[in-house]
């Protein structure tokens, strides 16, 4: 399947985004997998079902009907605390930009899913461990406000190690900001679906992720508040293997459903169909001039 226009344009800019290596080893079952097969199988190991972490743009590409109109690309990180540890924070950002081909840890925009116009946010663990700094907070808040204005349903894929330490309390406050935006969005009868992917923890799970109307977890994703190591250090014992997995959360009653990635798109479409009146939705994406693809 040829890449859609929006993605091709990005890839031209980021020539190395297409990984050159032909084979990849499954970290779970050690099977050597042909890279093209992994991609065709939505980054899931065909032998054992292991879910590889996905690049945000790949995730979007596998979900949307065709076009994706990105917003928030002009919101970029600064260095509010003048942070330096082993290296200065701006250097870390630069390295992650190169490594991930992303400008920050979340991509936000508009698309259609089986004809449903939706606002879509996708976090990416490759950029600063998906941590929420002020840019992630601002982009998520913007997305929710724009979706609210258009009365569109909003789907956010989370992947995060929590709040971004290098932005200190300004990062923590994004929990408040995004939650306020979620509340306003939901209060007007709009649907918000969170899809929790591996891993979703800390300040993201404890703010806008668990504030969703519907919470879907991707199979085997690690999801929790405290990190596994922190808990093990606190209680001084090893945790069971399934602790804080999507399946564990389902059993405990924290999420609506756990889905294999290959079942995710049709399930999201079904959920939209139950909760959203297609006819009520705003005009199709292309008719919104301010969101014409740049």
């Amino acid at each position: 399947m040829p890449a859609p226009d929006w993605l091709r344009k990005r890839r031209e800019r980021d020539a190395s985004a297409d990984d050159a290596s032909l084979w990849q080893k499954c970290p779970k079952c050690s099977e050597m997998l042909y890279r093209k097969d992994i991609v065709a199988n939505l980054w899931v190991c065909s032998r054992c079902g292991y879910h590889f972490r996905m690049h945000a743009y790949d995730r979007i590409n596998t979900l949307v009907d065709g076009d994706f109109v990105e917003i928030g690309t002009d919101i970029l990180p600064g260095d509010p605390l003048g942070w330096t540890d082993k290296r200065p924070y701006p250097q870390k950002l630069e390295r992650d930009r190169e490594k991930s081909k992303l400008s920050e840890a979340v991509v936000t925009g508009f698309a259609t899913l089986d004809g449903f116009p939706v606002a879509l946010g996708v976090m990416d663990f490759n950029f600063r461990g998906g941590t929420m700094g002020t840019v992630v907070g601002e982009r998520i808040t913007n997305l929710l406000e724009e979706a609210r204005r258009r009365r569109l349903p909003c789907i956010i894929f989370t992947a995060s190690g929590g709040a971004r330490m290098e932005e200190g309390m300004l990062a923590l406050m994004q929990m408040a900001k995004t939650t306020l935006a979620v509340e306003r969005f939901k209060d007007e009868g709009n649907l918000y679906i969170a899809v929790l992917t591996d891993p979703t923890t800390g300040g993201v799970s404890a703010s806008f992720a668990f504030a969703a109307d519907l919470i879907v977890a991707e199979a085997r994703a690690a999801i929790g508040f405290a990190g596994r190591r922190v808990i093990e250090q606190t209680i001084r014992q090893k945790l069971p293997e399934n602790f804080q997995t999507a399946e564990f959360l389902l059993e405990k009653g924290h999420v609506d459903m756990v889905l294999d990635r290959r079942e995710l798109r049709p399930a999201l479409v079904r959920l939209l169909d139950y909760a959203v009146d297609r006819k009520r939705l705003a005009t199709p994406l292309k008719a919104v001039p301010e969101f014409a693809i740049q």
Binding site: A206, G224, F225, K252
Partner: peptide, 26 residues
């Protein structure tokens, strides 16, 4: 900080904190 124990994770610490924040928003 919020309790980081096994029981707190089993009873959805994330959801509880998120819920508190959501309450304060409205």
């Amino acid at each position: 900080g919020a309790d980081p124990g096994i029981g707190s994770e089993e009873r959805a610490q994330s959801e509880a904190i998120s819920g508190c924040l959501m309450t304060l928003t409205h």
